[in-house]
C-alpha cells in the first residue's frame, strides 16, 4: 500500500500524471490518518515546492468532515431500522406484505372507481351516505378536527364501515420552523370495508388510454378461494 511513498522521493522524475496521483494519495492518507512516516516525509517534500498542497489538505479535511456529518445522520436513521417481524416471524410479515401488495393496488382502484361511479367519495364532512346514527356526537361545527376524526372512526366501526386506523403514520416531510417548532406533514391511513354488488377496475388500452371495465366476480371468487 505504501509503495507509492517510495516513489515520492524520486518525484522530480515522475510524469505530471503520476505526480498528481501521488499528491492525491498523500492528501487522502493524511485525512484518513493512515499516513506513515514515509508518507509524511513525502508530503513535506511536496509542500516545500507546492505550498498549495496545504490549502488542498485543509479543504479536503473540511469536506471529509462535512460528509462524516451526513453519514452520522444516516447512521442514526439506520440504527432505527430493524428487520421486519420483530413481533413475529419474518415469514408471517412477508405473507402480510405480499398479500397486501397483491390486493392493495386493486383494492385502491376499486374504491376510487366506486366513488367515481356513485359519488360516494366526498371532501364534504357533512355528507353522510350510510345513514349513520350521529346521536350523542358533537356537531361537526363544534368538534375539533381530532374529535371529528375520532367520531368518524367510532361511528364507522359501529356500522362496520371502518375496520381501523393503521398504527403507523407515514411522515412525508419534517421541517424546522423559525420559532423553534417542527412542522410534520404525515399520512393517516384508515382501512374501510364496503360490500359491493359490482366493481370496476382501471385498465389501459392498446393506445395507452385509461378506461374502466367491470370486474368479473366469478374470476375474483376463484382467485380468492385459492
Amino acid at each position: 500500500m505504501k509503495n507509492e511513498s517510495d516513489q515520492s522521493k524520486s518525484r522530480s522524475t515522475m510524469s505530471p500524471e503520476n505526480s498528481a496521483h501521488l499528491r492525491d494519495l498523500l492528501i487522502s492518507r493524511v485525512i484518513d490518518g493512515s499516513a506513515n512516516p514515509e508518507d509524511w516525509s513525502a508530503f513535506r517534500v511536496l509542500a516545500s515546492s507546492d505550498a498549495e498542497v496545504w490549502t488542498d489538505l485543509s479543504d479536503a479535511q473540511r469536506e471529509h468532515e462535512a460528509l462524516c456529518e451526513v453519514m452520522h445522520a444516516a447512521s442514526a436513521i439506520a440504527d432505527g431500522v430493524d428487520l421486519p417481524g420483530g413481533s413475529g416471524s419474518p415469514l408471517v410479515f412477508e405473507s402480510r406484505v405480499s398479500s397486501a401488495a397483491r390486493w392493495g393496488g386493486w383494492a385502491i382502484a376499486a374504491v376510487v372507481l366506486l366513488g367515481w361511479f356513485t359519488g360516494a367519495i366526498t371532501m364534504n364532512p357533512s355528507h353522510s351516505d350510510d345513514g349513520m346514527n350521529t346521536a350523542g356526537l358533537l356537531p361537526l361545527g363544534q368538534a375539533s378536527s381530532e374529535q371529528a376524526f375520532g367520531q368518524y372512526l367510532e361511528a364507522g366501526q359501529n356500522n362496520g364501515r371502518v375496520v381501523g386506523e393503521m398504527p403507523n403514520q407515514i411522515v412525508v416531510e419534517t421541517r424546522p420552523m423559525v420559532d423553534g417548532t417542527i412542522e410534520v406533514i404525515y399520512l393517516r391511513q384508515v382501512i374501510e370495508r364496503r360490500v359491493l354488488d359490482r366493481a370496476y377496475r382501471e385498465v389501459v388500452d392498446e393506445f395507452g388510454n385509461p378506461s374502466v371495465v367491470p370486474v368479473d366476480l366469478d374470476t375474483l371468487k376463484r382467485t380468492n378461494s385459492q
Binding site: E63, V70, A73, T174
Partner: peptide, 14 residues
C-alpha cells in the same frame, strides 16, 4: 437524509 437536519456546509458537500 430523511428527517435529519444537516448544516449548510454538509448539504453543499453532499
Amino acid at each position: 437524509i430523511g428527517t435529519m437536519q444537516l448544516s449548510e456546509d454538509a448539504k453543499r458537500v453532499l
